[in-house]
């Protein structure tokens, strides 16, 4: 069974089809890099996979179930454009809050552990609004990984990250892949993404222009896919 299966998905904003008959699959333990120009439909697809919106037509299955099922939501870790943590709360309060919402047995312990893993343990009690941008982003990474999700949906995860946050994220993603987690990430940072990806899908104006395993040519020349299938 595929960890992520997208079958014939259409999404309309008014009359405009943001996604057109998208078919994609990602097996467990693989990393699918979604690439494409701005407006290609990457974020729309990720938001449907995450259960934030519903497809107009077609179906999406995460580990064989609908994305909005409660059990499925426990399996998904999501990093979107925002950091999705509260400025008015401290780092430990934020993570404890989400640990409680995900029903973890020892929320405080899990929060402390993830603050250590992302190098934020020294500022655990500090309010997020006082954090630097890099620290906020590491906290967002900790929030997404906190409940040990088996499917990670990452929307432009490397954008605007500082070097330390990129290193933390790449390490966590590698460890996740080794543990059998499935990663679907949209990105414009092709070099970082292709180093990690096992599969690549190129979206062009809402349609899948290419989908297949990552090849050495793609790593050697990140523009290869755009040149070959890009504006078609």
């Amino acid at each position: 069974m595929n960890a992520v299966a997208v079958d014939g998905v259409w999404k309309f904003y008014g009359d405009y089809p943001a996604l057109r008959d998208v078919k994609l699959e990602a097996a467990a333990g693989t990393c699918l890099a979604l690439i494409g120009r701005n407006g290609a439909g990457k974020t729309t697809l990720l938001r449907i996979l995450g259960g934030f919106s519903r497809p107009g037509r077609g179906s999406v299955r995460i580990c064989g179930a609908a994305p909005r099922d409660t059990a499925t939501r426990r399996r998904i870790g999501f990093i979107g454009h925002g950091i999705s943590v509260y400025d008015e709360l401290s780092a430990i309060e934020n993570l404890t809050l989400f640990a409680r919402l995900y029903g973890l047995r020892e929320p405080r312990k899990a929060a402390t552990e993830w603050l250590e893993r992302t190098g934020l343990d020294r500022v655990a009690g500090g309010l997020v609004r006082e954090f630097s941008r890099g620290m906020r982003q590491r906290l967002a990474v900790a929030r997404a990984f906190l409940h040990d999700p088996s499917v990670l949906l990452l929307d432009e995860p490397f954008t605007a990250l500082d070097d330390r946050a990129i290193a933390v994220l790449q390490r966590l993603l590698r460890e996740g892949l080794a543990e059998g987690k499935t990663i679907v990430m949209s990105t414009h940072q092709l070099r970082e993404a292709l180093e990690l990806a096992t599969d690549v899908a190129l979206l062009n104006r809402g349609k899948v222009a290419f989908s297949g395993p990552r090849t050495p040519e793609m790593v050697a020349d990140p523009g290869f896919l755009y040149a070959r299938y890009g504006e078609g």
Binding site: G50, G51, F52, T70, A71, R73, R74, I76, F78, G80, H81, G82, I83, S84, V85, Y86, D87, F98, L101, Y102, G103, R143
Partner: peptide
């Protein structure tokens, strides 16, 4: 701010 609603909607 920070798209926190997404995190709540994504939570189980």
């Amino acid at each position: 701010p920070n798209d926190c609603l997404d995190a709540l909607i994504a939570a189980p």
